[in-house]
């Protein structure tokens, strides 16, 4: 019996977005990292193109992150005090992109200044040749102030700047326009909100191939399935030809997984949760692998061991 395999004929294609600029392109990165370009659902190689694998970014912070789980601090060791060294360590741990997370304050309560943000960006750029993602502290005024400065400091590097949200995107987009960077657009797990923000940002004149969307992810056990389904819907809409959904997707899995008790703490939790470190790494790994299956193009992770597992998973899915 010959079974006729159903093949979907999608009309749409995910836009290719290149992060980082080499010397030739006006930056200093050793190479650019491209995502997108798919013409079918994740890893269905038999019916379409999957030109690039999902990319792993590792999150580092400008300040020693006081609220991180001891497991993470232990895993990275001393480098967490030195963003440049941390970036190098992240590269060695298998990162293809570095996320530099800026803080609101340093040493407790003095605000991080424009000069601080520029200096740390420069240090990280000097320390690694990987393309850089920079997120502001997540507070509107500080984001706008610091990211504009960072954009200027790294002019031409094609950084991915974040996080643009509907309530605050104009300044970040303007900075990206001025200095040839990209932005990430976050919306709250909703297809239409995602589309709307993409429209608003591209209306400002930023080409779609400089926008990555972040449909908002949640950790395993904490509503991950919502993000999972919204990502599937976005990707299906993109393949059906809906232009404003055809952007690559980014998920902050490390942040999400490590703020949950399962990963964060080792005491005062049910015995059935098992061994702490194993559980914590599994939590980040499974959050990552599942969202990769639903279409994530960039996964921002935290623990080197979870990164190693995600790498195995991605390589196998790409047929390596």
């Amino acid at each position: 019996m010959t079974v006729e395999i159903p093949v979907e004929k999608w009309s749409g294609k995910v836009i290719e977005v290149a992060l980082g600029a080499t010397a030739e392109e006006g930056g200093t990165r050793t190479h650019a990292v491209t995502v997108g370009g798919q013409t079918t659902l994740p890893f269905l190689h038999f019916e379409g193109a999957i030109p690039y694998p999902p990319r792993i970014a590792i999150e580092i912070s400008d300040q020693r992150p006081g609220d991180w789980s001891p497991l993470l601090l232990e895993a990275w060791g001393d480098v967490v005090k030195d963003p440049a060294a941390w970036a190098k360590a992240a590269e060695e741990a298998g990162a293809e992109l570095i996320l530099l997370q800026l803080s609101l304050t340093k040493d407790g309560d003095t605000p991080v200044t424009v000069a601080d943000a520029q200096a740390v960006t420069r240090q990280v750029l000097d320390a690694t040749g990987l393309p850089l993602i920079v997120f502001g502290p997540g507070q509107v005024d500080a984001d706008n102030e610091l990211l504009v400065a960072v954009a200027e400091e790294a002019s031409g590097e094609r950084l991915l700047l974040g996080i643009c949200e509907e309530k605050n995107y104009r300044t970040i987009v303007a900075a990206a326009l001025a200095h040839n960077h990209l932005v990430t657009a976050r919306t709250a797990m909703d297809v239409n909100l995602a589309k709307q923000l993409n429209i608003l940002i591209s209306d400002m004149g930023l080409p779609l191939n400089r926008i990555v969307m972040d449909p908002t992810s949640a950790a395993l056990g904490y509503g991950m399935e919502y993000g999972y389904s919204v990502m599937e819907r976005l990707r299906i809409a993109a393949l059906q030809g809906d232009k404003m959904t055809q952007l690559p997707m980014l998920v902050t899995v490390g942040y999400e997984a490590w703020r949950q008790k399962e990963s964060k703490v080792g005491v005062g939790v049910p015995e059935a949760w098992g061994e702490w470190e194993e559980r914590a790494i599994l939590w980040e790994t499974l959050t990552t692998t599942t969202l990769i299956e639903s279409g994530a193009d960039i996964v921002i992770m935290r623990h080197p061991e979870a990164v190693r597992r995600a790498r195995v998973f991605i390589d196998r899915l790409m047929g390596k």
Partner: peptide
């Protein structure tokens, strides 16, 4: 150009 970018951002973002 530096001033252009700095003001340009404010003009573009609407401030």
């Amino acid at each position: 150009d530096i001033q252009l970018r700095s003001w340009g951002i404010q003009l573009v973002d609407g401030r």
